[in-house]
Amino acid sequence: MAGGNRADPPKGRGATSNPEGRFEPITHEPVDDGWGDKDPLPPTLRTEVAVDAARTAITWNDSPDLPFDRSVNPYRGCEHGCIYCYARPSHAYWDLSPGLDFESRLVIKPEADRLLEEELAHPGYRCAPMALGTNTDPYQPVEKKYGITRRVLEVLERTGHPVSIVTKSTLVERDLDLLAAMAERNLATVTLSLTTFDRELSRRMEPRAAAPNRRLRIIKNLTAAGIPVGVLVAPVIPVLTDGEIERLLEACAESGARSAGYVLLRLPHEVEGLFREWLATHYPLKAEHVMSRVEEARGGAANDPRYGTRMTGTGAYAELIGRRFNLACQRLGLAGHDLSLDTHRFTPPPPPSGTQMTLF
């Protein structure tokens, strides 16, 4: 599928093409040979699943921009198909395209729960909140079939290990029983990602994610179950969604959200080209304006990967977004809430069978 391109992307997908990843030794350029579309893509793409033979479940990081140092990602790639997803470039490490491959050729970790339990049983493990949904959504559609995220949650609940989840999927409601039981012990929080209330924009930009108003109902349902809920207005997209910040926060506060954060649009590596292509396809009259604002907030480039500024940008426009967001949070009571989790309830699981027994 590499190199394919067409004016109308496959139904239910976000990217409009399937370019090679940055590590590929060969690139393709579509050429009109007079026989019709240039390397046409099929009108629909079926999701394919491969198995990741990983030997560990926990991913560690030391980023000063992130409020956690460990996470579990049951899936690589994401069927939601969000065109702005910063995780798209990670597919290049699998010799797959960050474009349509990212949305349709997924890699799953069916042993994630077993591997996690082994790591938690390690004598040197020290408990701190585990994050789910930091790379791709742990409740994307394939979770309904494979149930890996639920099994991971079962391990965390059984061991009293705190967890924070980020999602934009209704499937999180399936696990209300586990999350409510953990929340009673201050072991779980859920953050809902919300970008826009414009249904048409959402359909084009994040085609397989829950509809915007449905996400508000998720906040209400989780809150009613006693689960602390935050909201992440992400990404804030210049021109397309930046005018909705206050309205989004107001609706989330009314639905029960207790805290809020935001991320200004990031376009690392291949995401820049994919996003420009998406703009040219769906919003050609706004494309230049959008990108000029992005570059204004990113020091004249499409992306600024520096710690400390990559989430919020720099310059007058970025500062205005930050002031508007902070003022709205203060007015709505979304600022200053402590959503820290209890790390003292953790009880390590017994070591796997076949390992050396402890003396006492």
Rank of each mutant, 00 (worst) to 15 (best):
A2P: 08
G3H: 09
G4M: 10
R6E: 15
R6W: 11
A7C: 06
D8I: 14
D8C: 10
P10C: 01
R13Q: 15
A15I: 06
G21Q: 06
G21R: 11
E24D: 14
T27Y: 11
D32I: 01
K38G: 13
D39G: 03
D39Y: 04
L41Q: 13
P42W: 09
P42L: 10
L45Y: 11
A50K: 10
V51D: 13
A54Y: 12
A54E: 12
T56F: 08
W60K: 14
D62Y: 03
D65F: 01
F68A: 06
D69Q: 11
N73T: 15
C78D: 03
H80L: 15
I83R: 03
Y86F: 15
A87I: 10
S90Y: 12
A92K: 10
Y93L: 14
D95E: 15
L96K: 13
D101P: 05
L106E: 13
D113G: 05
L116G: 06
A121G: 05
P123S: 09
P123F: 03
P123C: 06
G124E: 14
N135R: 11
Q140R: 12
K145G: 08
R158H: 10
G160P: 10
V166K: 09
K168D: 13
L171H: 14
V172R: 11
L176I: 14
L176P: 02
A183C: 08
N186A: 09
A188E: 07
T189V: 12
T189A: 05
V190F: 04
F197W: 10
D198H: 07
E200P: 04
E200H: 05
L201Q: 14
S202N: 15
M205L: 14
M205Q: 13
P207E: 07
P207N: 08
P207S: 06
R208P: 09
A209I: 08
A210Y: 01
A211C: 05
P212S: 04
P212D: 05
R214Y: 09
L222K: 03
P228L: 06
V231M: 08
P235R: 05
I237C: 02
G243H: 12
E244A: 02
I245K: 04
A257Y: 03
R258A: 02
G261W: 01
Y262L: 05
Y262P: 00
V263G: 00
E272S: 09
E272T: 07
E272C: 02
A280C: 06
T281R: 14
Y283C: 03
A287D: 04
E295F: 00
E295L: 00
E295I: 00
A297F: 00
G300R: 00
N303F: 10
P305T: 01
R306E: 02
R306A: 02
Y307L: 06
G308Q: 00
R310H: 06
T314Q: 00
G315R: 00
A316W: 01
E319I: 00
A328M: 07
C329T: 08
Q330S: 11
G333K: 10
G336N: 07
P350D: 15
P352D: 13
G354W: 04
